[in-house]
Design a binder for these strands. Structure first.
Length: 514
RNA sequence: GGCCCCAUAGUCUAGCGGUUAGGACGUCGGCCUCUCACGCCGAAAACGCGGGUUCAAGUCCCGCUGGGGUCACCA
């Protein structure tokens, strides 16, 4: 029995990856199988090494160790798809030879135009299969003319594909509704569909346990297995994690980066336990259990296909259970591994040293470096610059968060942040003077702080972005008191232990002076 | 919109033809207590709707509704 987790290194390590990895891992360990990590970096424009590193680091952090992978190797490597391109090209050729795939010379312009035309006619927007029926001569001629092409799957035009989903039972999909998927892109790299099937077969994966969003493309994959003459693996689609509004979990509505959970002070074992609760019932009303215990009792009949909403509050409660039961020495070492490490404190000292005169001022001055989410209830008014309203301020902070997401992808550095923030102001017509203060308040909860961008670096990408979103959100529901006194620069916002920021801010309380 | 998936309290879930529909988060109330927290006790809160099948339906079947996913040279 062999299973795999196959993340695409195109962004932050995603909580959904950990979720799927968890169930693969548990299943593998339950039955003495292997758990494989395969990096699906076939998108040359979006894949990055830093994302790959982050994903592996995060997966190790949660404690899901793989038996085979790009770092530790294994009998069926390499485990990074970018190192296997030749393999996919060979297999694409096999499909062409068998008539199960064909070259398509259509330009993206033509595809776009055809898509629009089909939409206008009320037809589904898929490929119109123009190149599927090209004559041998024409193909040869266009090849020798050096035209660029992709290789598409010649999907059966009739009949149905039936398969058994381990969680839902029989699923039946009409072949005619499935598009002739691109298998090999014009840059020579495979798409997910080809690479995935070829690798799963070559790596002897027996059970494909992945997210629900893949159900619809399963017929494509089965068509590929059949065309190659291979036996398809067993399929099992886990439900998608949800935002509170039930849409697929996303960074705008919920923290999704595993690094956020780490930096916000969650324990990996608590996160894993919580993730198990998303669909899995231990039995006997037990909610707290270890990975080992889960493996012991695991069975797919205990997993439901419902669509679970990821509830930060319940995760926090569960984390508290772990924390309360932890021996003091253990908790101390966890704290040290977290933000009380020499490394981290040493990073803060240069930022804070000039701003304090006695050692006792260090902890209060550093508080926002050492917390997760911030409570803005005491500083709401100063989140809104003069001459702007709270909607504008909220929108600016929310848009800035997205903008940083885009612009500071390749390195969360002070220089990059400053440039991005300044560019953002220029683009949106905000003065840096008016917007930088709300940003500072959002990030630190205070009007006075060390230099903003260095501070953002020290706080870290995920916590910073979370706070910006939180502040934007708090502004949305803020109702200003008649006369809001300005917050004194030395007044720290109270750090809030719960990750869920209070949506309705209580009336600003007088801030205590330290 | 086509296709596919899902459906027990606000949220996570138990239930697998006969239950006062169980547990947990959250909420509210109380106890404990120098405060707070923890802990303990209690309360409110759910089978989406309509048809079947059956002596009996949250549980099986069909339809509807609702939600979601997917329709890329992204995964």
């Amino acid at each position: 029995m062999r299973v795999r987790i196959a993340p695409s290194p195109t962004g932050d390590p995603h909580v959904g990856t950990a979720y799927i990895a968890l169930f693969n891992y548990v299943f593998a360990k339950k039955y003495g199988g292997q758990f494989i990590l395969r990096i699906e970096d076939t998108d040359q424009t979006r894949s990055t090494k830093s994302s790959e590193d982050a994903i592996m680091r995060a997966l190790r952090w949660v404690g899901l160790a793989w038996d085979e992978g790009p770092d530790c190797g294994g009998p069926y490597g390499p485990y990074r798809q970018s190192e296997r391109t030749e393999l996919y090209q060979q297999h694409a050729q096999i499909l062409i030879d068998k008539g199960a795939a064909y070259r398509c010379f259509c330009t993206s312009e033509r595809l776009e135009a055809s898509r629009r035309a089909r939409m206008a006619e009320g037809k589904p927007p898929g490929y119109d299969r123009l190149c599927r029926y090209l004559s041998e001569e024409e193909i040869a001629q266009r090849l020798s003319a050096g035209e660029k092409y992709v290789i598409r799957l010649a999907m059966p035009l009739e009949g149905k594909t039936r398969f058994f989903d381990g969680l839902r039972g029989e699923i039946e999909i009409e072949n005619a509704t499935i598009d002739d998927q691109v298998l090999l892109k014009s840059d020579g790299f495979p798409t997910y569909h080809l690479a995935n099937v070829v690798d799963d077969h070559l790596m002897k994966v027996s059970h494909v346990i992945r997210a629900e969003e893949w159900i619809i493309s399963t017929p494509k994959h089965i068509a590929l297995y059949l065309a190659f003459g291979w036996e398809p693996p067993a399929f099992l689609h886990m439900p998608l994690l949800r935002n509170p509004d039930r849409s697929k979990i996303s960074k705008r509505k919920n923290p999704v980066s595993l690094d956020y959970y780490r930096d916000a002070g969650f324990f990996p074992e608590a996160l894993l336990n919580f993730l198990s609760l998303m669909g899995f019932a231990f039995g006997g009303d037990r909610e707290k259990f270890t990975l080992a215990e889960m493996i012991e009792v695991f069975d797919w009949t205990k997993v439901s296909a419902g669509e679970p909403v990821f509830d930060l509050q319940k995760l926090t409660w569960l984390n508290g259970l772990y924390l309360h039961e932890m021996p003091p020495e253990m908790l101390l070492s966890r704290l040290r591994a977290w933000r009380l490490s020499d490394d981290y404190l040493l990073q803060l000292i240069p930022l804070l040293r000039e701003r304090i005169e006695r050692m006792d001022q260090f902890i209060p001055s550093a508080s926002f470096f050492l917390t997760g989410d911030i409570d803005y209830s005491g500083v709401m008014a100063s989140l809104i610059p003069k001459g702007r309203d709270q909607t504008q301020a909220s929108q600016a902070l929310a848009e800035l968060t997205d903008y940083l997401e885009e612009q500071v992808r390749h390195g969360w550095t002070a220089e990059a942040l400053e440039k991005a923030c300044r560019d953002f102001c220029e683009k949106t017509g905000w003065k840096t003077k008016e917007l930088f203060m709300p940003i500072r308040i959002a990030v630190t909860g205070r009007a006075a702080s060390p230099p903003l961008f260095e501070t953002m670096v020290a706080i870290g990408k995920d916590l910073t972005r979370r706070r910006l979103r939180l502040a934007a959100h708090a502004l949305l529901t803020y109702s200003a008191p008649a006369a809001q006194p300005a917050v004194s620069p030395s007044a720290p916002a109270q750090a809030h232990a719960k990750p869920q920021a209070p949506a309705k801010a209580p009336p600003a309380k007088p801030v205590s002076s330290s």
